[in-house]
């Protein structure tokens, strides 16, 4: 506790580093996955067999990305991007890849979970294609997308700490530093702060979900009769 207090300036800096890198990775991953996932979903009902296959290929390729272990990806990234070893953008982009990989499947699952009967009834009411996508499909896919985004958020915050091994400064630096100095308090502080940050992100997402999707948290009347 004393150690944390005397080093609060450094800790604050690491928390900030961790926040912006993981926060941007989550946001960018989601922003990229939404159109790609949507395209995969739309292709699935195409009359052309080849296009339908492309949809499946998109989803499988994105999940293969997720199987690449993190440390190797972190060290391959500088070579691919041609940036300096210590540039945080390397780790950021690697995390975007993971976020994207989980989220594409999440978006496709979310869109598939929208009840066809509701889409049908919206069309029958006279929603045009565009209107229906924006004001019916997207909001109704929201809850499942949010669930996937929460998984992305937690794992991104946790994965980033491995970036400390390649010298990118974040809360993970407390692990490498604490280990080298044989100082468990520093590591424990890092663990607590990382978990706390993941929790804060999660609470923010849940709160945003409540705000944007109020219908999702009401108690239903029960029974279908």
């Amino acid at each position: 506790m004393n150690w944390a207090l005397t080093n609060y300036e450094r800790l604050l800096d690491l928390v900030w580093q961790h926040t912006w890198i993981s926060g941007s990775a989550i946001a960018l991953g989601f922003a990229l996955a939404l159109p790609v996932g949507w395209a995969a979903y739309a292709m699935k009902s195409s009359p052309h067999g080849a296009v339908r296959q492309l949809s499946g290929v998109t989803v499988s390729l994105s999940s293969v990305l997720y199987t690449i272990p993190s440390l190797p990806l972190f060290v391959i990234m500088p070579t691919i991007l041609g940036l300096g070893w210590l540039n945080p953008i390397n780790v950021l982009i690697a995390l975007v890849i993971y976020a994207f990989a989980i989220m594409v499947r999440g978006v496709v699952d979310a869109l598939n979970a929208v009840p066809p009967s509701v889409l049908d009834s919206a069309a029958a009411c006279g929603f045009s294609r565009g209107q229906r996508a924006i004001s019916v499909t997207l909001p109704l896919a929201g809850p499942v997308m949010l669930a996937a985004l929460r998984v992305v958020s937690v794992s991104t915050v946790s994965l980033l700490s491995i970036g400390a091994l390649v010298g990118v400064s974040n809360l993970g630096s407390l692990f490498t530093n604490g280990f080298n100095r044989n100082f468990p308090t520093e590591i424990l502080t890092g663990v607590v702060l990382t978990v706390a940050l993941a929790l804060v992100f999660d609470l923010l997402l849940v709160a945003a979900g409540r705000l944007l999707m109020p219908w999702n948290s009401v108690v239903s009347a029960g029974g279908s009769a």
């Binding site: 794992s155 946790s158 692990f175 663990v191 990382t194 929790l199």
Partner: peptide
């Protein structure tokens, strides 16, 4: 399961190694 997912792997590794 959710809570364990938030646990940073490197943190757990280094902490256990020191202990």
């Amino acid at each position: 399961t959710g809570a364990l997912r938030a646990l940073p792997t490197l943190g757990l590794l280094t902490l256990l190694a020191l202990q």
